[in-house]
């Protein structure tokens, strides 16, 4: 049973690496933010699965906080790109 979860986390890790190709290639800042957002979502999913593997519920709590904080980060970058900061 643990094999399913471990395999899923490995696949998610590979997907995160693939998303990083777009993060590096760009070509514009919004493109990179999209890739970063995908990495964040996959990280949250991986954390939830790791909570099952290691039997640590606190991992899920960390995932909740990570989801909310990465949202704040995305909003901040978006505001910056849109030129809406410092008004």
């Amino acid at each position: 049973m643990t094999d399913i979860w471990t395999g899923a986390v490995v696949v998610l890790g590979i997907l995160i690496l693939l998303a990083m190709i777009r993060l590096v290639l760009g070509p514009t800042v919004p493109d990179r933010v999209v890739a970063l957002d995908a990495v964040n979502t996959l990280t949250v999913a991986a954390m939830i699965l790791l909570a099952v593997i290691y039997r640590q519920i606190v991992f899920v709590d960390v995932a909740i906080v990570y989801a909310l904080l990465s949202f704040v980060g995305t909003l901040y970058i978006a505001k910056s790109v849109g030129g809406e900061l410092g008004q």
Binding site: V29, P30, D37, F71, L75, K79, S80, G82, G83
Partner: peptide, 14 residues
């Protein structure tokens, strides 16, 4: 969903 909206709006504004 909200983040996607923010990125789309920012991209358009830029």
């Amino acid at each position: 969903a909200t983040g996607a909206h923010a990125i789309a709006r920012a991209a358009h504004r830029s």
